[in-house]
Design a protein around this nucleic acid. Structure first.
Length: 508
RNA sequence: GGUCGGUUGGCCGAGCGGUUAGGCAGAGGUCUGCAAAACCUUGCACAGCGGUUCGAAUCCGCUACCGACCUCCA
């Protein structure tokens, strides 16, 4: 097994992955703020890290995967100007308790993750459930001299932190002097000593719905704080991998590092990973409406699944979307288009169909071993694994699988004799191909019925229909046989005739 | 304006110094009652201009365009 390399945002280089503790990897991913439905772009990030989680486990690591739910403290706007957070805004608009809003969207988020077949994390902590930890962290920061209190709010002193630690700005590539010099032309500095400072505890005003008691009076935690507090609580002050969307790099992740460091005096994360954005019409997908057009450049997954949207010609299933995402590297932007999704859909079915064929094939004993074919198959299997070890290169690994699809189909149609393939190679192919599709890529087989009894009935019915059609074909009753084929096709059941008989698949 | 990243064939998208990426679409063929599926064959792609090199899509410089972040976003 070759070594795993991960692109580290801290160094902008691929680095060999060396875990802190071989027996348990710590993986933290920034989860959603549950004040609205997740859009497809959010789904991409979580899917990217689902692959990371799956693959780490596949190569034998035990992983503690922590992904938070932010249900408080996420400010909408500048902390100095207004203290209304995203949660409160939605709660007021819908006349609901903030917790009701959070719960509603949390349930929706979970449903969506399930549709994408993303595994649940091991721990999914909520910001509101960790107020104590966050207050303690603010206290630690104050004790270490990196925070200051003004009128019931507490701010992180970026200038002091930057002067004493060579840490701030490293992740996002910001130059400290630039950040600090921006002060001069800043109009609204408010209580902050410095424009680069940020709030870690914010005093509640009469409009604040979510408020907690603290040593500084009633208030609520700053946005970046919950990730710092919860990652420390569940993964320790130092852990292996922290992931999130590219757009969180600054200020969120930069401030997270500062807080951890400011509280615990250690740099918290060894490997920072950032997933790139999903594009719609060549622009970043975003909930925030365009200030000029007023249209938000985003699509909700459910609208894509139902086909009811203005962007695409038809409905696409969750697994087609997942497959589509796998075709691009997580660090590249990915452009959504009808043509691209159509291509992904066909590719997905082709891959699944090949796996069915492969799993149905039985090796019948070796004879006239074809060294070259064996070598090619072995090489592709190894290459796919090497690709995953190379910073989770799913598109490249997937391309290896498609080379194998070609081999599988050739074996299926007897263009390559199965007996010319070594049994060991064949069994390896069978296992690894299947592992890749289901365990590593996390694809689900949408062509199979999940309910066993329904599947049984369906199998029986299809056998019957195919037999009737075969009889019609034998008597050259093409009208009947074509009618059966066409009507089934309308039901998205595709018949495939071959010398050995007719097979069928459902394409959703 | 600052910082970073991108520009690959009809579309999506890998590759990042010498090898066919891959998917989809297209063309020709095999098979088939016809079709589908499958298989075989097929595409003079690397924004432009210079430079380095025996050799560059891949390294360096300049130009053009696009995007992200710098303010909430996965």
């Amino acid at each position: 097994m070759s070594d795993l390399y991960i692109h580290n945002s801290l160094s902008s280089k691929k680095e060999k992955f060396i875990p802190i503790n071989k027996d348990l990897i710590g993986l933290y991913v920034c989860g959603p703020t549950v004040y609205s439905d997740v859009h497809l772009g959010n789904c991409r990030t979580f899917t990217s890290f689902d692959i990371v989680y799956r693959y780490l486990q596949y190569i034998g690591y035990k992983v503690r995967y922590v992904r938070n739910i932010t249900d408080a403290g996420h400010l909408d706007g500048d902390a100095d100007i207004g203290t209304e957070d995203k949660m409160a805004k939605t709660a007021k608009a819908l006349k609901l308790e903030p917790m009701e809003v959070a719960h509603h969207y949390t349930v929706g988020f979970h449903k969506m993750m399930e549709l994408f077949n993303n595994l649940p994390p091991n721990i999914e902590p909520r910001a509101t459930g960790h107020i104590t930890e966050q207050i303690e962290m603010v206290q630690d920061i104050l004790e270490n001299g990196y925070g200051y209190e003004v009128n019931g709010s507490v701010y992180f002193n970026v200038q002091k932190f930057a002067e004493e630690n060579d840490v701030y700005g490293k992740l996002s590539g910001r130059v400290i002097d630039d950040l600090l010099s921006e002060t001069r032309d800043l109009k609204n500095q408010g209580e902050k000593r410095h424009s680069a400072d940020f709030a870690i505890w914010i005093k509640a005003d009469e409009h604040t719905l979510q408020r907690w008691n603290s040593p500084w009076g009633e208030g609520f935690p700053g946005w970046h704080l919950e990730c710092s507090a919860m990652s420390t609580k569940y993964l320790g002050s130092r852990f292996d991998i922290h992931g999130g969307g590219e757009d969180l790099k600054f200020p969120h992740h930069e401030n997270e590092i500062a807080q951890n460091c400011g509280a615990c005096n250690v740099v918290p994360v060894n490997y920072w990973m950032h997933g790139n954005m999903l594009l719609l019409n060549g622009r970043k997908m975003s909930k925030t409406p365009d200030p000029i057009t007023g249209i938000s450049n985003s699509i909700m997954p459910q609208d894509l699944f139902s086909g009811k949207n203005e962007f695409f010609s038809k409905a696409y299933s969750p697994m087609v979307l997942r497959f589509f995402m796998l075709q691009a590297h997580y660090r590249s932007t990915l452009d959504l288009s009808d043509e691209a999704l159509l291509a992904a859909e066909k590719g997905y079915y082709r891959l699944m169909e090949a796996n069915h064929r492969l799993q149905d094939l039985v090796h019948t004993g070796e004879e006239n071993i074809h060294e070259n074919e064996n070598e090619q198959i072995e090489k592709m299997i190894q290459a796919a694994i090497d690709d995953m070890n190379d910073d989770f290169n799913t598109p490249k690994a997937l391309s290896r699988l498609f080379v194998l699809v070609n081999k599988i189909n050739s074996i299926h149609t007897n263009q390559i004799n199965i007996s010319s393939i070594k049994e060991e190679t064949f069994n390896k192919l069978k296992k690894v191909f299947n592992d890749f599709i289901f365990d590593i890529f996390g694809l689900k087989d949408e062509t199979q019925s999940t309910d066993e009894s329904t599947a049984h009935v369906l199998d029986g019915l299809m056998d019957l229909i195919i037999n009737i059609r075969q009889d019609a074909r034998t008597t050259k009753n093409w009208g009947t046989s074509d009618q059966i084929r066409d009507k089934l096709n309308e039901l998205k059941i595709k018949l495939k005739d071959s010398k050995d008989g007719t097979s069928w698949t459902i394409e959703k």
